[in-house]
Design a protein around this nucleic acid. Structure first.
Lengths: 225, 225
DNA sequence: CGTCTTCTTGACCGTTTGGTCAGGTTTCGT
DNA sequence: ACGAAACCTGACCAAACGGTCAAGAAGACG
């Protein structure tokens, strides 16, 4: 029970980390659903199952809690961004990157919504990330795409517009999932429907930039459900 | 009920219409920037240049004002949607539709942001529009695309995923324009840059669904950035 | 000019919200 | 066991908000 505790976190700090994780999860959900202003510390505390005053013991202000949530999302996004660099083949790099971003939209829709909200409202909290980290990442990836084009491995499209298209499409499945659910007769996309969407996005992009011929993907064609 | 009474607006009713238009424009901007909760009737009144109490004389509640703004946007969106049906050639129909939606994003970014905010927060105000008008429009357009595919005029991609891709990409230029500006070194896209983006989106989509060969569009020739 | 309607506005009110605080309870090293 | 430190919480507060109201100002009409 206590043999290996010596070098490990104490039960106290473990409990603290667990409570913080609980609050952050609740905060992510509430901020995503109501926006920064619409979210109240009371609602977040309720969803976390603790009194409001206790929430303020762990996060002194609503804004610091929000910042923490946004930074977590950005980290997840950055991890996925690295899948772009895992290989130098445009077909595999784009396929992996699109797939990774689609998976994030499926598994972290709330985080994506918080991010969208932040940008929509002129990024009052994470403007510096946009200018530094995101700007640098974009510039280097554009250089890679330009090289692929120069090497004749892709059609000569505008790289920046391509990146925006990938971001927009993949995040759409998180940010607008309420609209997608509604148009799907009120039900969330099934796994099969989502895989169809993912394959279609990959197929259109790859064919669109001349890497693969059009319409040859794994077209099962069935919308299922 | 003499018909001429309604056809001849008095100076009084003209002034009224003008004031309402002023308030609606201010409301669109403020709702777009701060969201429904973040927007305050005081801010809207300030931007319209009138006292808050006067705003409430024209729009009794914040919610009725918001509803009016959202319905105006939806109407603009519907008008553009009809460009899809102007002809039966997939190349021209898709080109026109994408161009129309891109132009809306450029000319009505605030309206698009209000719409995005509404969907993001589960469409508390316009859920019925989603289920009826938008649902019907989507279904009929999917049928058209399926016919084009059956006739061999398009690659067999999933039509719904294609529509979502078009919506996502075109609206991205409005909803995320702050991010786009930031990545453009703080400046809005120039007309030339925007035309490049529009042409790239059209080229990738058309090549992606097998209508045009990849990379043959008007990329980077006439309109240098 | 008189009166009726429409419009304008500063002052005000009840409610909600982010955040505080004092006092209590649990945990932990010694 | 015991005191200190960490944790928990009901009650509270000042600020901000949506909306109201009464008292007027400005046209419209005869």
């Amino acid at each position: 029970m206590s043999a290996q505790d010596a070098a490990l976190p104490t039960p106290r700090s473990l409990a603290r980390a667990e409570t913080e994780r609980l609050i952050l999860k609740a905060a992510e959900d509430v901020f995503a659903e109501y926006g920064f202003k619409g979210a109240t510390t009371g609602k977040i505390a309720d969803r976390a199952g603790i009194p409001k005053a206790n929430l303020h013991y762990y996060f002194s202000t609503k804004e610091s809690l929000y910042r923490q949530v946004v930074e977590n999302i950005f980290q997840i996004w950055l991890d996925a961004a690295n899948t772009f660099d895992d290989c130098d083949d445009p077909e595999e790099a784009l396929t992996r990157y699109i797939s990774a971003k689609m998976d994030i939209s499926r598994q972290h829709p709330m985080g994506s919504k918080v991010w969208a909200n932040e940008i929509l409202h002129k990024a009052p909290v994470i403007q510096d990330y946009l200018e530094t980290t995101l700007g640098d990442w974009t510039d280097t990836r554009i250089a890679v795409i330009k090289r692929w084009i120069a090497e004749g491995r892709m059609a000569p499209i505008d790289p920046r517009s391509l990146l925006y298209m990938i971001w927009a499409t993949t995040q759409h499945y998180a940010d607008f999932n309420h609209q997608i659910h509604t148009l799907n007769h009120g039900a969330p996309l099934s796994d099969a429907q989502f895989e169809t969407a993912k394959a279609t996005v990959v197929a259109i992009i790859l064919a669109g930039v001349g890497i693969r011929p059009a319409g040859l993907g794994k077209q099962k064609n069935g919308s299922g459900a």
